[in-house]
Structures are given as structure tokens and as C-alpha cells.
């Protein structure tokens, strides 16, 4: 199998914190690997090592066959990197930022202008091209950041939490841009704390927690590890939540998790659902939502670690703090 990215036994220690505790990764060319984990799991540290920004304490990694330690310059000429925070110059305009990167990559003045113009059109930033980046919205900034990492047409792209902090609309826009890149043959390593994001973009998912790989496989394989299904119920009226909770607990034999007005409980026997429906009907409770679905990645994480994966800290950058 032709690998674009390979890592073996990566270890990184920051003071007393072991950010990476022996990570192995393998990303076949032209595929998307989703590195999934909560804040502080070690995702950003892994990407920084692969992008040559950080040296591992132990282990080895290759990008496009080049060793990240001994052939760092060769690695840098093959990759694009989009960080967790938009790493573009806020005082420069969108166009100037792209021209700057192009010039640094050795484009002639004319080619740099042309490439910047191309990317601005492609990423829907043409109208804002002459404005300083500090006036951009979060979504525009992230699009420009992605464009900046694509100036040299890298075949391998690292996206470190590309949609963290974006509104749903901007997130979908970015997803579509990423899908287009993948369709053109780009290999992508994506870190995310959004299960939905890994599910929708990645061919293969590696779940990491506290610097270790705790599971890997396709989205379906991971879900299959949980077996079972989840019953989701949301009563139309919030006042009915308590009654619905006791009905479901009684029938399923396990107390559901309450998330706002929505109840969630794993069920092993689908035949329980009609019983729930009957009892709800008898109690005069109208359900706004009543579904039986396959396990989500959050369920996978919960099963593997006993914790939810989607817990976000407000700062969002607690990861890898020394």
C-alpha cells in the first residue's frame, strides 16, 4: 500500500504532561484520516510533529517517504498546514497574504499574483481580497488560511481542527472545499473534536485519548464495535420530559441520558420501541422526535473511555499546553 503519511511510536513529553504516548499512524495516498479526540488528547502535537514544527522525543515519522527529522526541508515542500487558529497576517489583505506565501515558495511576481487570484476565486474571497484580514469573518479567515496552505499545490494537507469555532453554515462550506481537494487526489490528515466532522469527511478514523490510540477503523467499523442501537426520544412539550423519562426507564430497564428535552438510551432489543410508543400514547405524550439509530461516534467514545468526546473547553486551546 502506498502511504503518504506514516508514524511509528511517536512520543512527546511537555514537562510533566505526556502529550503523545506512542502513536502509530498510516495514511494511504489520496485518503482522509480523521484524528479524533477531545481537547488535550494530543492531536495538535501529532500534527505539529508531522509538519516538522516539533521534534518527537521518540519514534519516527515519514511524509511522502521523507523523514520528518532528517529531511525536514523536503517534508515542508510537500505539505500544506492549516492550524487551529487562522495563521494569516491580520494586517495584510487576503490577496497580499497569498502573494506573500507564493513569493516565499519561489513564485515569480507575476505567477504569485496569478496564483493568489486563482485561489481567491476558488475560495469565494474575491470581493474581500483587497480588505485587511482583520475585517474578515471567522469563516472567511479559515477559508483564507486553507487557501494559504494550498498556494504551493501540496499533495498532502494537514488540517488541525479546521472548523473549530465556526458556525454551521461556514463549517459546511469548508467541508465542501475539503471534499473537492480530496476528489483531486490530495491526502488529508484532519484533526477534529467533532464526531460528525470525522464521520462525514474521513475514510478512516483514529480515536486518540491522552496521547494514545484507543481505536481505529472506518466510521462503520467503529460503530459496529458498540453493537446495539440508540433510542432517541424528544417529547413535544418540555413538561412531559419527566413522565417520558420514567416510561422509558421502566420499559428499557436503564435510565436514559437527558440532553435538554431529548432522551438517549442504548437499547439491545428493537422490539421495545413499540412498547414505548404505546405507553407514550396512553399517557397522551406527543413525541417531536422518536428514532432508533445506529451508534454515533460519541457513543463509541463513551464506550471506549467512559466519557463523552464532545466536551469542549471554552478556550479551546488547552491542548498541548506545557
Amino acid at each position: 500500500m502506498d502511504e503518504a503519511i506514516r508514524a511509528e511510536g511517536l512520543v512527546k513529553q511537555f514537562g510533566a504532561t505526556r502529550a503523545l504516548d506512542g502513536i502509530d499512524l498510516s495514511v494511504p495516498r489520496g485518503t482522509v484520516l480523521g484524528l479524533l479526540g477531545p481537547n488535550g488528547a494530543g492531536k495538535t502535537t501529532a500534527v505539529r510533529i508531522l509538519a516538522t514544527l516539533l521534534a518527537p522525543d521518540a519514534g519516527q515519522a515519514w511524509v511522502d517517504g521523507c523523514d520528518v527529522a532528517s529531511e525536514a526541508a523536503a517534508v515542508r515542500s510537500r505539505i500544506g498546514l492549516t492550524g487551529q487558529y487562522a495563521s494569516v497576517d491580520e494586517k495584510l489583505t487576503g490577496r497580499e497574504n497569498l502573494i506573500l506565501i507564493a513569493r516565499l515558495l519561489g513564485f515569480s511576481r507575476r505567477d504569485a499574483r496569478a496564483r493568489a487570484g486563482e485561489l481567491l476565486v476558488e475560495f469565494g474571497l474575491e470581493d474581500a481580497a483587497h480588505r485587511p484580514v482583520q475585517t474578515y469573518s471567522g469563516g472567511m479567515r479559515r477559508r483564507l488560511d486553507l487557501a494559504a496552505s494550498l498556494v504551493g499545490r501540496p499533495r498532502i494537507l494537514f488540517l488541525d481542527e479546521p472548523t473549530t469555532g465556526l458556525d454551521p453554515r461556514a463549517r459546511l462550506d469548508l467541508w465542501n472545499l475539503i471534499r473537492e481537494l480530496v476528489a483531486q487526489g490530495t491526502t488529508v490528515l484532519l484533526t477534529t473534536q467533532y464526531l460528525e466532522e470525522a464521520d462525514s469527511l474521513a475514510d478512516e478514523i483514529v480515536v486518540i485519548d491522552q496521547g494514545r490510540v484507543i481505536a481505529s477503523g472506518t466510521s462503520d467499523q467503529l460503530k459496529a464495535r458498540i453493537g446495539g442501537q440508540t433510542l432517541v426520544l424528544a417529547p413535544e412539550h418540555e413538561s412531559d420530559v419527566a413522565t417520558a423519562l420514567s416510561i422509558v426507564t421502566e420499559i428499557v430497564g436503564r435510565e436514559p441520558e437527558v440532553d435538554g428535552a431529548r432522551l438517549r438510551v442504548p437499547v439491545s432489543d428493537p422490539a421495545l420501541v413499540p412498547a414505548v410508543v404505546r405507553r407514550l400514547d396512553e399517557s397522551g405524550i406527543v413525541a417531536r422526535e422518536l428514532t432508533l439509530r445506529g451508534a454515533s461516534l460519541d457513543d463509541v467514545f463513551l464506550t471506549l473511555t467512559g466519557r463523552h468526546a464532545s466536551v469542549e473547553t471554552p478556550a479551546g486551546d488547552a491542548e498541548a499546553a506545557p
Binding site: 498546514l81 494569516v88 506565501i101
Partner: peptide, 13 residues
């Protein structure tokens, strides 16, 4: 602090 330095460091310069 803004990550611009990292962007430069990831370039082949």
C-alpha cells in the same frame, strides 16, 4: 502568538 510564525516555519524557507 497568532500562529503566523508557525506558518512560516512550515514553509520550505
Amino acid at each position: 502568538t497568532r500562529g503566523v510564525f508557525d506558518r512560516f516555519r512550515a514553509l520550505p524557507i
